[in-house]
Amino acid sequence: MSRPRILSLYEGLFAGGARVLHTNVITGLHVDGAHEHSVLSIASQARREGALQPMTDDPRYRWLREAGIEVSDLGREAGVVAPAPESFTAAELEIAADAAARADVILTLKEQPLGLLLALDARGLLPDVPIAACLHRSDPTHSGAAVRWLGELAASGRLTSTISCAESTSDAYARFLTPAVDRFVIPNGVDLARYRPKPYERMPLRTQLGIAGAAPVVVFAARFDAMKDPGLFLRAVASHARRDARAQYVMCGAGMTADNTALTAAITEAGAPADRIHRLGIRDDMPRVYRSADIVALTSAFGEASPLCLIEGAACGATPVTTAVGDAAQVVSGIGLVTPHDADAIAGAWAKVIARRPDYRAAALAARHRVGSGRMLDAYRGAIDGLAERADVAA
């Protein structure tokens, strides 16, 4: 058969690790000639974590376009709740049906876009092609109605497979699927050419922020959301700052800005030193941020699967310290620390890493080979080619 045509459905193009991962996968497979990829985004902008994020301003959108991937959208605004099947208009379904009709395989980024596929199926507009849901959570109960749509699509026989980024994800979603749905697990990986140590880049961001070269820096790369538990991070900052007068803390991601009053209130409530917390918001230079850091911290309460920030930070030489969520413990095995959901315990782990910083940095850099994107792209290529071959045989 000719080069398979793969359509990816996004709820929207806005800040988030799953979008980074999926976009890297399809751009890599498109550029190397494995497939012809295209993207349909339900939303053209997102209002999340108190920020309006237009699709065309998003780095993921730019990566797709620079790779020559067609990107279209339905013009909606994404919010906290994914669009239900009954909410789609005839005009929106016509656009989606046209995009789907040109695909040999359909991928969905997470379960949120599945409402669109159910709406197409209910009107006889969904082509008979393999459909794979790419899943990136370890707690589907926090997906709202979207996990029910996953179950409905599986029960109808239209869902062919799931591709999960972690064993915890695959296991968590299994109860919503039928035995006929194939389940693949492909661990996350990162571009080691982009996420790599550059000693001379340790200082530029520190200098910009007024942070001394010898000061310990803890980076929290996450959106301002209950899943990420920024309150726990800030309580750990308060505990750690009392132990270490030199340490500085960097928060980046959607909502991590000085004009977010909820974040300001959380800093005050935690008793954390506001003058040592740098709120940088959404960044498109995360390798530079990680290279300035000693620790990349994650304090998530639920939902994480294979957290990308831990892998990215470690590949740049930062030591990952995380709560035990999803497959995080496996991700940081041998290169970082896992903590309970306790501020003092987290602060103690940070202190331990700082005290033995050269050893932990050396361990992270020695393990870079295991987090590269090459084997991940090969696995996705194989899974998608298998789906395309199935469609070719059926035709």
Rank of each mutant, 00 (worst) to 15 (best):
D385R: 09
Q330I: 13
T56R: 15
S156M: 06
D244Y: 12
E312R: 05
T257S: 03
R390D: 08
Y200G: 11
R291N: 10
E111W: 06
H136Y: 14
A293C: 12
R223G: 13
R102T: 13
S87E: 06
R60Y: 13
I354Y: 07
A215Y: 04
E49G: 10
A133W: 04
F302P: 01
R368W: 11
E94M: 03
R123I: 00
L52P: 03
A238E: 02
I267E: 09
S333E: 10
S239E: 13
T207L: 13
D259T: 14
S300H: 02
E201I: 06
V332D: 03
P179M: 04
S41M: 02
R361L: 08
A363T: 09
A318V: 10
H369N: 13
A364F: 04
S239V: 09
A215R: 09
I354D: 08
M286L: 10
D182N: 15
L209T: 09
Q208D: 14
V217H: 02
S306C: 13
S41E: 00
S333F: 09
T162H: 06
L120Y: 00
T261N: 10
A272N: 09
V31F: 05
G326Y: 12
V20R: 15
S143F: 14
N188I: 03
A222C: 10
R76H: 06
T323F: 06
G374V: 11
M251Q: 07
S143W: 13
D128H: 07
G151K: 07
I354T: 11
E111M: 12
Y173R: 01
L117T: 00
V71P: 00
T23Y: 00
